[in-house]
Design a protein around this nucleic acid. Sequence first.
DNA 1: ACTTGGCACTTAAAGCGGCTAAGTGCCAAA
DNA 2: TTTGGCACTTAGCCGCTTTAAGTGCCAAGT
Lengths: 339, 339
Amino acid sequence: MNQDRRLAVLRAIVEDYVATHEPVGSRALVDRHHLNVSSATVRNDMAALEDEGFIAQPHTSAGRIPTDKGYRLFVDRLTEVRALSTPERRAIQNFLDGAFDLDEVVDRSVRLLAQLTKQVAIVQYPSLPRSSVRHVELVALLPTRVMVVVIASTGRIEQRTVELIVPISEDTLASVRRAINNAVQGLRMVDVPDAIVDVAKEFGPSDRPAVLSIVASLMETVAEQREGRVVISGAANLTRVPSDFPMTVQPVLEALEEHVVLLRLLGEVDASDEPTVRIGSENDVEQLATASIVSSGYGGEGQTIGNLAVVGPTRMDYAANMASVRAVARYLGRMMTPQ
Amino acid sequence: MNQDRRLAVLRAIVEDYVATHEPVGSRALVDRHHLNVSSATVRNDMAALEDEGFIAQPHTSAGRIPTDKGYRLFVDRLTEVRALSTPERRAIQNFLDGAFDLDEVVDRSVRLLAQLTKQVAIVQYPSLPRSSVRHVELVALLPTRVMVVVIASTGRIEQRTVELIVPISEDTLASVRRAINNAVQGLRMVDVPDAIVDVAKEFGPSDRPAVLSIVASLMETVAEQREGRVVISGAANLTRVPSDFPMTVQPVLEALEEHVVLLRLLGEVDASDEPTVRIGSENDVEQLATASIVSSGYGGEGQTIGNLAVVGPTRMDYAANMASVRAVARYLGRMMTPQ
DNA sequence: ACTTGGCACTTAAAGCGGCTAAGTGCCAAA
DNA sequence: TTTGGCACTTAGCCGCTTTAAGTGCCAAGT
């Protein structure tokens, strides 16, 4: 019993099924792939693969389709993530370069990813706690009301308003601004609290309460629990395949509305810089039991500041999607980190 | 031939069809509504209504369904937009009050609207040109690079970076900041260019080029062509009705991805503060030919600063959706304008 | 120890005819 | 103008048969 050929058969089944969306039989297999054996031999291999749980039959007299476990083996052992071609890469580059503020970068990325993969694409905004501080601005709206604005290195802006018990003068506010920026500029957000905890000590007792309020508000802002926004594109791609309709589309659409769930899913990526694949039921969200997720972090030099993914049916072109996800993640990371 | 009864029959047909999603016949009609006539009479009325194009038969031996023209008459003459109940209004209020920054207000609004109507909801971010200035901040990132940040009264923040040919000192920048804020604070965005065109004259010849660059950048920022972002929620609601599937869902999902198109649609609202309804083919976007849109502007006292809408099948509950759209628009407008 | 051709068996899908239920249109009478 | 009555239309359903695709297994071949 030939191990290599068995794997080749599995690979052929996955490829054909992804291409045709129909259960693939032994006859069709030998025709289309030049396995130099007869259909009966393939049938024996198939029976073995089925025993091991890599493929299954929808009903007794039908061809085989890969199981989640089959796809898993395919992804782990039978897939080379081929790089995109140079023109493709150039196209991505050009498209993203056209954007000039953060919203637009994210928006273009997600649309691009949806278009490249013909699946649903998800991009998370760069997470605040994991990026660094470019500048902190304090704006006096009233003598007792200050707006704290944090500008992150990624271009993301976060703002919140704080009420003071005692009024603060413009001059004092300017000193506070200077002191804070000296302390935090360039730091990672997570290190900000430690860095500013002593800022208030530099000020006299009359100003101290106000300064403390401001510092506290800044700490809250950078801690920011809501890990952030996600943007989705390509929902219409879910309907491209006429197949087994509402049954499968409805729950996926519902899951996509739950941004909290998505963020959790997006967070579960390998540390490696290769895309992570989660197939069907591997995915612990019930509504996505018939879907696969190809996700990756993005950021610079090992620092992940956000994640992105595509979601599609388990019968997707894994190699192509992994390549697209990886490429977009790289360019996106590059745009967020330097300058 | 009794005009009033004919309208009553149309109303009954619309109501039943919206409730059941099935063609409604003369028999069922007299049973469910207490029209005090026989089914034969109703049949005669139906024949007349069909001649006039208000209803149609899917096939010869089926009941009738309303045409777009029928829905139009229904909306114009037979619908009272009843106000929401006090508990409903209170629930909306509470839900929206929980939000504390602009993103969250918009996000909650769109989710709320989707939930209330069980349709797809769309909310446009408050348009910058139509709101007013709370504060302008200038941040020196480098001596020759300044970030211009505009904070609108709605809480929306817009930012862009400008490169200077000559460096600018922190002190000068502070003067510019003061001069600009004196000139523009509280103004409507559209009036900003006129107000700041002369700011540069206050500065000496060595600083003037830099100031001019900053002013120009500010002008660009407030002019901001891209009328803004839209947020969508409730796409999963499109799949609630198992009916005539992919045919009708696919194009709608596609249309929803085209934010530019949506913005155009959203823009076409009546000046009145009642919701605008566009039914099926009235809508000039081909992909939405089987959909109806209930839209409304929001803002304070006649000032529209943004729009919102729900999109659903032509067979929707117009009265309920109009009520929800109106209510959410009011609360949203109220949250954006005062303070 | 595999591989292969052959063959009986299974089953979903497609096609077909008859029946039913819902609904219409029209007419003649009230 | 309304109504009861009646002939007519037709989509949808049920049960039946046929077809095509595919399997599993066995006995023979290498």
